[in-house]
Amino acid sequence: MIAGLRFFHRFHPAQSHKSIRMGAWIKTWFKNMVVGLSIFLLFNCSSFKTATREQVNNQTIPERFEIKGVPFFGQEAYRCGPAVLAMALVWTGDRVTPETLAPETFTPALKGSLQAAIIGAARRHGRIAYPIERADLMLKELTAGHPVIVLQNLGFSWSPKWHYSLAIGYDLAEDLIILHSGKTERKLMPLKLFEKTWGRSGHWGLLVLPPDLLPATATADKYVSSIIGLEKAQRWKEALKAYITALNKWPDNYVAQIGLGNCYYYLKDLKSAEEVFKSIIFRFPDKGTAYNNLAQVLLDQGKYDAAYDRIQMAIRIDGAAVEEYQRTAEEIQAKRGLSKH
């Protein structure tokens, strides 16, 4: 419910509107805090136990499971981030070592690696970085054969000792989790201790997967947004593969279709991009994005009149992004003008 509190602050009227006087500001803040806190306390008192064991009991997963053949790199001082990411990347077939990854992930001043750096590095290597934030999801991924990077706090909340490990298996009969951690290959850690140390990072977990492999627990929104991360790293080829993976599972996903078309475009495969955007228009005739992007694809092929028709359609049907469409329209006209000289 901490997230709930943050939400209350986010919608703080004082942030949204300047004309609120100071007195009202404090009153509002106080009221927000009271409402937020009471909800927080209520939930704290009600049964909000999410212990690993309980989630496990409801699952239909084998009692013990271990992924065989996951490579191991012993870490050097403070360098658990590069070591763990190297294990995950090598497992996906990428040839890296902790040494080659260190410049991308390790921040010497912090004596550690930030989560964002781990995610970014995985994407720069053309891999899907997919967040895992619950124990039951992690166990399911393990049984699907996907190792999971986890961030643990081995110290206290007030004196943290952050540490990345790679979960590769578990044994529920013995209440153990199996980790590649620090200098230890196949470290066995009691599940209870693991849950505590992992819980202190807010259950931060990460799957690193090649773009043709879908997470066992994948949901459409989460998976598609992790592909958008690949696009941001400009790994168009891998993003394209991942969009195809996504569309195999969720053929009607609108955003994945747009992404597929965009990737073809950035890979300069204008013919395929054109086909994709045309099929999106056929399936989602009331959304402007595909018209706009198809107009751009046609424009790049010198088909000025067809491009202009499409962008006029976009302007007609979709009011939300009309400014962007107008810009595209202007550009088409400018280029059409140039071509006639």
Partner: peptide, 11 residues
């Protein structure tokens, strides 16, 4: 490239 609407914006 400026005129393409990104997947993120569509999303």
């Amino acid at each position: 490239f400026a005129a393409m609407i990104s997947t993120e914006a569509a999303s």
